[in-house]
Simulated assay, not measured.
Amino acid sequence: MIQEQCTHRNNVQSTEKPHVYKVGIYGWRKRCLYFFVLLLMILILINLTLTIWILKVMNFTIDGMGNLRITEKGLKLEGDSEFLKPLYAKEIQSRPGSPLFLQSSKNVSVNILNGKNKTVTRLVAGSKGIEAQGKLLEVKSSTGKLLFSADDQEVVVGAERLRVMGAEGAVFSNSVETPHVRAEPFKELRLESPTRSLFMEAPKGVQILAEVGDIQAMCKSELRLESKDGEITLDAKKIKLLRLPEGRASPTATRQTVFEVCVCSNGKLFLSRAATGSTCQISNSVCL
């Protein structure tokens, strides 16, 4: 430090010696000042070193940092990225030729809001399954053809074929409307109601057709063919009525294998041994 000497002189001559005042920092104050300056320089060097190290580790560049790059089209992330808070973006897409992978420990939710910030469409993919909520759900092919559609009124399957692979088939709790029911080639068509009745109704008729195979109708109680205004026609080369009861034969009847089919007033059918005339009246004990 610069030492200044100040000489105080009076205009009046005096016999006393002049006093000298020293101005500056001396002793322990000077040593403390030098220590703080040295400590400040060390902290500046440490701070500068840590800043350079952070820039190197985080890969800070002019275009961004780490896996994050700032481009003309927006932000570009390379590798795995984790967001701890909500992410707001207009568009999220993967790199060309690479898939877009979303991973969550609980679920992934996609919400569509209206102008009043109310959820109108929601898609939740969680551990229990996928849940979709909205006014309309549509699935289309790559050509734009409607494959599946569902809303509050109806469910539409637009594919050319609906295949049910379950062993129990398809279960409908209410009525089914269809213009055509057909089995696969070389497969059987079976309509079954294990505990209830099965009804087939049509205003212009119901047609059951087997061009190559057989048609079988089996039941445990009664099989009824009823025509209110028309007739029932059995058109075949052979008509077999198996296990019909045989009426009581007359004592004078001889052993023969020719029978006639008789009908009771209550609709029962039975066999009676044929004769020159009708024997149904003789053997009508089956009708009782």
Rank of each mutant, 00 (worst) to 15 (best):
E184W: 12
P185I: 01
P185V: 01
P185K: 12
F186Q: 15
K187A: 12
K187W: 05
E188C: 00
E188K: 05
L189F: 03
L189N: 00
R190D: 02
R190C: 03
R190N: 08
L191S: 01
L191I: 14
E192W: 10
E192Y: 08
E192D: 13
S193N: 14
S193H: 09
S193V: 03
S193A: 15
S193Q: 14
S193R: 07
P194Q: 08
P194R: 13
P194H: 08
P194M: 03
T195C: 02
T195E: 05
T195K: 15
T195N: 15
R196T: 14
R196P: 00
R196S: 11
R196C: 05
S197G: 14
S197Y: 06
S197N: 15
S197W: 04
L198H: 03
L198D: 03
L198R: 06
L198T: 04
F199V: 01
F199G: 06
M200F: 15
M200G: 11
E201I: 05
E201A: 08
E201C: 02
A202H: 00
A202I: 10
A202K: 01
A202P: 11
P203V: 05
P203D: 09
P203Q: 11
P203Y: 05
G205P: 10
G205R: 04
G205C: 01
G205I: 08
G205N: 08
V206M: 07
V206I: 15
Q207L: 07
Q207F: 11
I208W: 06
I208Y: 07
I208F: 11
I208A: 02
I208R: 01
I208P: 03
L209I: 05
L209R: 02
A210D: 04
A210I: 02
A210G: 14
A210P: 05
A210L: 07
E211M: 06
E211G: 03
V212G: 02
V212D: 13
G213T: 01
D214M: 04
I215M: 09
I215W: 04
I215A: 03
I215T: 13
I215F: 07
Q216L: 14
Q216K: 15
Q216V: 09
A217S: 05
M218V: 02
M218L: 11
C219N: 11
K220V: 05
K220W: 06
K220L: 03
K220A: 13
S221T: 15
S221L: 08
S221G: 09
E222Q: 13
E222A: 07
E222L: 07
E222M: 11
L223V: 12
L223A: 07
L223T: 14
L223P: 00
L223W: 09
R224V: 12
R224L: 08
R224C: 03
R224Q: 06
L225I: 10
L225Q: 15
E226T: 10
E226Y: 07
S227Q: 14
S227G: 12
K228Y: 04
K228A: 13
K228H: 11
D229N: 08
D229E: 10
D229M: 06
D229G: 03
G230P: 12
G230Y: 11
G230I: 02
E231C: 00
E231I: 08
E231M: 13
I232H: 10
I232W: 03
I232Y: 13
I232A: 13
T233P: 00
T233V: 08
T233I: 12
